[in-house]
Design a protein around this nucleic acid. Structure first.
Lengths: 253, 253
DNA sequence: CGGCCTTTTGATGTACTTCAACCCCTGTGG
DNA sequence: CCACAGGGGTTGAAGTACATCAAAAGGCCG
């Protein structure tokens, strides 16, 4: 991945240097320097309250393809992504895979705390997260209504996103799916300070296919066609949007 | 619809009689007789707290095809279904429709309270609901942590259901979709006291198709095939499950 | 350079859609 | 009482968007 694209996923590129690679659990001294500070659920807490937050959170890093947790594991932790990209997916017994979503810095995992994880979370790029013990987090939420309200809002947002995806999978063509996905991802990256023309796609074509309910070949063909029509320019690990209105139109409404 | 099937959707069949048909807004004196009492979000509140609840809730009834609210309307209310079935759907600009879900007694609408409704809610059968002013409800939630926690749980459940549906639409065949839908609906009806063999399907084939990302003809063909193989028996406004294990197997995992 | 994996591109296959006809109700009016 | 119109549902024939199969064309790292 180019440095420019990486920047979109790592809002503070130097951050990683502050932690030893793969340090299992570095106690967090505070959330001040956290690149996800303004985005995350954590935002709900006044600065003074963050102390109790930092106490139960551990910073962790994951290499690409490493799993934060696996479908079926006991759900003993929740996470906030602070840098990198995570794919969240479910496997069917016969190996079919559906990627539920790609998580970016500020995104929260663990809104639906069941006894066991219903899906697997895996690093796409190098990822750093803030990991919280699920019990401690729940207890904290109990004591901080702001946090609870913020969780509710996050759950609502995620539900809305899931419903968007249901519409995409249920009623849109392959081209519309790809266009809508790119438009949505561009928005999410832009909100995190990335540029609005270059869309980072660190995930594989297989990942895209498994997210959009298509095959790898169809995704490739659609992107090739969009590039041939000068709607997109394919660049390493991403695409550049040449004709934003056209892409928007294909994404439809 | 036969009386037996209607019973599954109207846990207390006589309830409707207690209200004048289409009474615009009957002040609620209490939640004691509510058929959704044990299921709904309301459950979170201790009986003593229900008074404040009843104060802001109005009982309403809707005839089939009547809309509780429409996509784009200002979102000024939230609802708990107390009897009947509601379809929740989104329309694309070109008329394509995706039904996000069918709501049953105890289900709550308004977990993702944005300024405007992102989808339309329409009665499939005669429906009664408990309608709450959105502001008053939010204010109450602020004061009652139990309610807030219960809303979070409901949002989490709904998110899990949405993710199930994403997998269904993204990675399952037509036959698997129909089977999985029937199994899931059977479970939901059974939890509400309906029988586990007869599944009420008061919605049209078009509704099923728009929920499962298929066409009306494909839904019809799949159901016919399942009936021909003696997995199902088609009855008016529903199906009877003859071979539950087989249906379960088709629903896969 | 060569092996390996991902991506692209092409040829063929197929599950589901589209188009079309017919059936079966139920309601309505002569 | 029957005629018939109209809406939902089923079934059949033909079409198509996407999947599958196959192979070539990059990248990446030894």
């Amino acid at each position: 991945m180019t440095a420019a694209l990486a920047a979109a996923l790592l809002p503070i590129p130097a951050l990683g240097e502050r932690f030893r690679p793969h340090a299992a659990a570095t106690p967090l001294t505070g959330c001040d320097g956290c690149p996800a500070r303004a985005l995350a659920v954590c935002q709900a807490l006044a600065d003074a309250e963050l102390d109790s937050f930092g106490d139960i959170g551990d910073q962790q890093r994951f290499a690409p393809k490493e799993a934060l947790f696996r479908q079926g594991d006991e759900a003993d932790a929740v996470y906030t992504i602070t840098s990198g990209m995570v794919r969240l997916y479910r496997l069917l017994s016969d190996g079919r895979r559906q990627i539920l979503g790609f998580l970016l810095p500020g995104d929260f995992i663990g809104l639906a705390p069941d006894a066991r994880y219903a899906s697997t979370a895996e690093a796409v790029t190098p990822v750093s997260v803030c990991r919280f013990d699920a019990r401690a987090y729940a207890a904290l939420a109990e004591r901080k209504p702001h946090l609870l309200a913020s969780l509710r809002r996050a759950a609502a947002d995620e539900l809305a996103a899931a419903q968007d995806h249901i519409v995409l999978l249920g009623r849109r063509s392959a081209e519309e799916r790809v266009a809508a996905f790119l438009v949505a991802l561009r928005g999410r990256l832009a909100r995190r300070g990335g540029g609005a023309v270059t869309i980072a796609l660190p995930m594989s074509r297989q990942d895209l296919a498994d997210h959009l309910g298509l095959t790898i070949e169809t995704v490739s063909r659609v992107i090739s066609r969009l590039a041939r029509e000068r709607t997109l320019l394919v660049v390493p690990d991403g695409v550049r949007v040449l004709d934003a209105p056209r892409l928007q139109a294909l994404a439809a409404a």
